[in-house]
Nucleic acid binder design. Structure first.
Lengths: 145, 145
DNA sequence: ATAAACCTTAGACCTTGATCTAGAGTCAAG
DNA sequence: CTTGACTCTAGATCAAGGTCTAAGGTTTAT
């Protein structure tokens, strides 16, 4: 841990990796079972032994997951990275598909927000329920959320 | 909740409702169990008997779900319309809370979109994985699979 | 040298949001 | 009146993405 600035074999335990990436130990073993992380080296005792590359790969998985990829899709992305030439194109395409889905969702939510905001604005906040645009939209109209 | 002066009690079977809304029969019963749909009237035989209000409410649930709300959130959203007796004021407050949640969700998704869009933009879409920012986090070391 | 803290496995369990099954009753058309 | 489509219930099952347990073995710090 001291002067180990050196490249490859940091030999981290699973707990150390979990702590560094901010993920549960069980999750790391789960990803390994699911083929998202390669099987690591083992110490004589059987303990898993990770290096910086594993930390990077785990971070990649988490980032991809945060971007809305399913584990299945991430496994796919990782497999594609093996295809050193055509892989990049496919990865970019998939990212673009993801982006389109996310943008569509943002657009929908924005429409909903605007509708709701307008309802709130035009609701007096008192009086009879029949006059409340929020209730009218929720109960009777299709264009609410 | 949806007890209105509205159109006739059409007395639809669960299957008819399912067909009209485009949802499985099981899903309707599931929503009922989960408190998203009120318990419908029953025929003498025990068959559920729905009216147009139920159809509308079910459509509302599906739309909200499509927009990424959890069933829990939808139950909450529906509670807005149940608040009639506590007054328009309470309803408006709940709507405002909901608006804040939606805006937070939009902000989150926007952050995700920006991250993804930036990666895509700086990815050439061809060449070696080393040039692809989407993969670079993963392959920074040569030991990529 | 002993306790605390960590690691191993297989396998059970959790949450969400449904979907399916079995065994039974009901309804509508011919 | 019979047949096939429909509905009922309770409970099992699914899929994704983990999380936890039991019953150990290993390391490390005091």
């Amino acid at each position: 841990m001291l002067a180990c600035m050196n490249t490859a074999q940091a030999s981290l335990t699973i707990g150390a990796v979990a702590k560094r990436v901010g993920v549960a130990i069980d999750t790391i073993r789960y990803y390994e079972r699911e083929g998202l992380l390669p099987e690591p080296l083992r110490r004589a005792s059987g303990y898993r032994s990770y290096d910086e590359g594993a930390v990077r790969q785990l971070r990649f998985i988490r980032r991809a997951k945060d971007l809305g990829f399913t584990l299945e899709e991430i496994r796919d992305l990782l497999a594609l990275s093996a295809d050193r030439h055509r892989g990049v194109k496919a990865v970019k395409q998939r990212a673009q598909q993801r982006l389109a889905v996310i943008e569509e969702r943002i657009a929908e939510l924005t429409r909903v927000r605007d509708g709701l905001a307008q309802m709130i604005e035009s609701c007096p906040g008192h009086g009879s329920p029949e006059q409340c645009p929020i209730l009218r939209a929720l109960v009777a109209d299709e264009s609410a959320v």
